[in-house]
Structures are given as C-alpha cells and as structure tokens.
Amino acid sequence: MHKKTIRDRSLDLLIYLFLLLVGVITLLPIANVLSKAVSDESAVISGKVGILPVGFQLQTMKYVISSSQFITSIGISMLVMIVGTVLAIALTALTAYPLSKRNLPGISFIMLLFIFTMLFNGGIIPNYLLMKELHLINSLWSLILPALISVFNMLVIKSYYESLPESLEESAKIDGASNFTILFRIVIPLSGPVLATIALFYAVYYWNDYFNPMLYINDAGLKPLQLYLRDIVMDADSSSAMNKSADDMMNVSPEGVRSATVIASIIPMLLVYPYLQKHFVKGVLIGSVKG
C-alpha cells in the first residue's frame, strides 16, 4: 500500500467536509421540527424557532407521548409490524423455495400466476368488497393479509436460493435428509442475509403503510400510527379548515403539538435503524451480485 501524500489527504479532508455538509443539510428540516417540538409555543408562532429551540420545554412532548390515542396507535403499529413481518417472511421464504426448483412439473405456470399479480390487480373497490365479504373491515388482519407475499420480494429470495450450490443439497440428500430438513437446516440458515433484508423491507412496509388502514379501519381504537399522524398534521391544513366550524377552529392542535407528534412517531424507527442498516446494505448487495 502506498503512503498517502499530503495532496491526497487534503483532498480526502475536502471530500469529507463536503459530505458532512450535505449530511448536515439533510438533517436541517428534522432539526427544525425537533426544535419546534421542544420550544415554547409562543416562539413557534412568531417564527423564531429555526434549528435551535427557543424557550426549551418538554411539556409538549410529554403531552403527546402520554395521549392515549398516541399510545394506542403506536401499539397497533408495532403489533401489525411484528406479526406482519414474521408471517410475511415465513410465507415468502416458503413460497420461494419450491419455485426455485426449476425441474418441478408445472412450475413455470405457477410462476406465471405470481408474475400476473405483479402486473394486474383488482383495484380499490374490488379489494374493499373482498375485505368486507371476508369480514375483515375494522380488523387488523386487513392490514396484514394483503401484503403477506410481495412477489418482488419472493423473487429476490428465490434467486438467492437458486444461487446456492446444488451440490450442498445433493450431499445432504445422500446423508438421508428429507426435503424439510434440507430447507430448514441448510437452505434457510444459508440465506440469513437475504431473509434479514427482506424482513426489513416488510417491516418498513408495515410500519409505513397508510393506504390500507385508511381504507379498512374506521374504529379510532384500531388506527395505526401513520393514520393518526396524518390526521394530526392535517389538522391545521387549510384544505381541511374549509369544513371546520368555529368549534373545530378553537380546537386545532397548535404547531408545537404537531411537531412533537411527528418527532415522537419517528423515534421508534430511529432507534432500530442503526442496528439494522448493515443488514440492509449487505443483503441488497448479496442479492444483486449473485442473483
């Protein structure tokens, strides 16, 4: 390895500084919302709060976090995310496995069926009617079931399975392993990174899902966080103000409360992201190179 010259180093420094600057810029809006959440409401209204809080207080945060609707919503979101992700990854991994065996009879037809759903689907109203007939309106299953198998994710796992050397499975078979043993003891353990990545995709999907709950959930006690958040943030929006009576106008959430709700709801994701990010990068890379 050759030694870095001063020129190289100063160039490195410059690049780092530049990247740091770009990074900081992307953080500015978040910093602004954060400061609004912990600033005095009067300062927020008079537009004094920029990146740093003015008149620091935690009252607003406390109010938001202790509101029962917020706690319920975050609980619902967690529940949907955890149950959804676990089921989705299990089903997706199990679906991908037989499809990765190209010599099975009829496999290309079944593949075609899957691909078909990627291109065509029923649309909102038929889906809604389906959910209604299944009695899933106002049930959290309506948020979990429709997204259990994403064909795209399934294909990623499938191509990863296909990249595993066939000789591994053959040798296991010679040692007397059944198909299930091969799947659970050999294939799945070897697919750790890709499964982790796909699990993350599912988790993020379930966490961020807004549209399904908007359609299928009417009970305020079952609203996930994203829906709750949208309602709160929309509260002062002029398009909804049009319908508001004097009573509603008196009850609009102040800007500080809205900012605090936004902050409180990104905290859980913010906490897990650093730990999961390495899987994200690794898993996506592995999939793309070998797949």
């Binding site: 089921l87 990854i89 299990a90 991994a93 659970f184 799945i188 353990p189 750790g192 499964l195 699990a199």
Partner: peptide, 11 residues
C-alpha cells in the same frame, strides 16, 4: 442464522 431460523419457525 439460527436466530432467523427461529424467527421463521415462530412465524
């Protein structure tokens, strides 16, 4: 890997 396998089974 073991953890992920567990997760799948639990699922």
């Amino acid at each position: 890997y073991k953890k992920w396998m567990m997760a799948t089974l639990v699922g």
